[in-house]
Design a protein around this nucleic acid. Sequence first.
DNA 1: AAACTGACTTCTC
DNA 2: GGAGAAGCCAGTT
Length: 97
Amino acid sequence: MSFCQKIYALALKIPKGKVATYGQLAKLAGEPGAARAVGACLRINPDAPRIPCHRVVGADGSLTGYSAAGGLTKKKTMLLAEGVVLSGDRVDFSCSR
DNA sequence: AAACTGACTTCTC
DNA sequence: GGAGAAGCCAGTT
């Protein structure tokens, strides 16, 4: 099982209405500091509709990444639909971490 | 097997 | 506070 597979599993474990940072996922995967690797794996996204990559945001809550259709704008919409509190273009960690 | 790239993070100017 | 540069990890070529 590759590091990516672990990332996917963690992404699935993110509760609805909550989000996680790349660094957070990396840490949970057992590789703190592998934030970039996390992004690389999510970018591949073998099971796009199954993997909630939109729940994964930057360290400061920035909606970075997301190569899927609609881009960051769509991602923001999806997060709002899930009940995630967004402050402008950033996630409100006070309620959504 | 080596080098390049990239959905990141953090420091400094 | 915003912009630029350096460092780390895994994957791909």
